[in-house]
């Protein structure tokens, strides 16, 4: 699905990530962890072609990311759902329209009947007409998740999806992600919440990738 081969990325002269090789198999469940500022978000952005590596190769759906045109990138992002750390909503549109935005931009508004079902799944049916700034942190995260999956993507990437929600809400979000994984989606979650990883491991066979010293390591049984 997504493959990084010997990828290096740096902002300016400093390298943030170097020699990273990761392969996300279809249907796998990965956590990405590491201290703040270690490059978790950067690694995720490389995975949906928001950043281009300084060196090395990123392969998305069997295609070298370097060869993708702007329209190819747009089409590819319809196959990769992303829950961004700061959610990235259009604040002037109600939640229902924000969640349906990927359908609208892809010209597939006729499938909007799934929208009510999806909002019910993330427990936001009664908040459909609220504007994003009116929602709580947990509601925004769940709305972001709903938007990420509305196109029925093959891969779901989430950046700190439980960043500013309480433990109960974290578990609810995790359950939603586990459900998606059981439906066959490839999941990649960046988090520094070790309790969340432990909770997930009880439900699915999740692998943990840890960024340390600009390198990626497969974390062992210490979790």
């Amino acid at each position: 699905m997504i493959r990084l081969d010997n990828v290096t990325y740096g902002y300016g002269a400093t390298e943030l990530l170097s020699g990273i090789s990761v392969h996300l198999q279809p249907g796998s469940f990965h956590f990405l962890t590491g201290p703040s500022g270690s490059g978790k978000t950067t690694l995720l952005r490389l995975c949906y072609s928001d950043l281009t590596p300084t060196s090395g190769q990123v392969t998305l759906f069997e295609r070298d990311a370097k060869t993708l045109s702007r329209d190819d990138v747009a089409r590819m992002r319809r196959r990769i759902g992303v829950v961004h750390q700061d959610c990235q909503f259009l604040d002037h549109l109600p939640i229902a329209e924000n969640v349906a935005l990927p359908l609208a931009t892809a010209g597939r508004r006729d499938e909007a009947s799934d929208l009510a079902e999806l909002l019910a799944w993330v427990g936001l049916s009664d908040r459909a007409q609220a504007l994003p700034p009116e929602l709580s942190g947990g509601e925004r995260q769940r709305a972001a998740l709903a938007r990420a999956v509305i196109m029925s993507p093959d891969v779901l990437i989430a950046d700190e999806p439980t960043g500013n929600v309480d433990w109960e809400m974290s578990l609810r979000l995790l359950n939603l992600l586990v459900e998606l994984n059981k439906m066959g989606k490839t999941i990649l979650i960046a988090t520094h919440d070790l309790n969340l990883i432990r909770a997930a491991k009880a439900q699915v066979s999740a692998r943990v990738l840890r960024i340390r010293d600009r390198q990626i390591q497969l974390a062992g049984a210490d979790l």
């Binding site: 935005l101 990927p102 196109m151």
Partner: peptide, 15 residues
């Protein structure tokens, strides 16, 4: 910011 969000959810430039 609006344009960035649209690009992130897979909107093409023409849209």
């Amino acid at each position: 910011q609006v344009i960035r969000v649209l690009r992130l959810v897979g909107a093409r430039d023409s849209y």
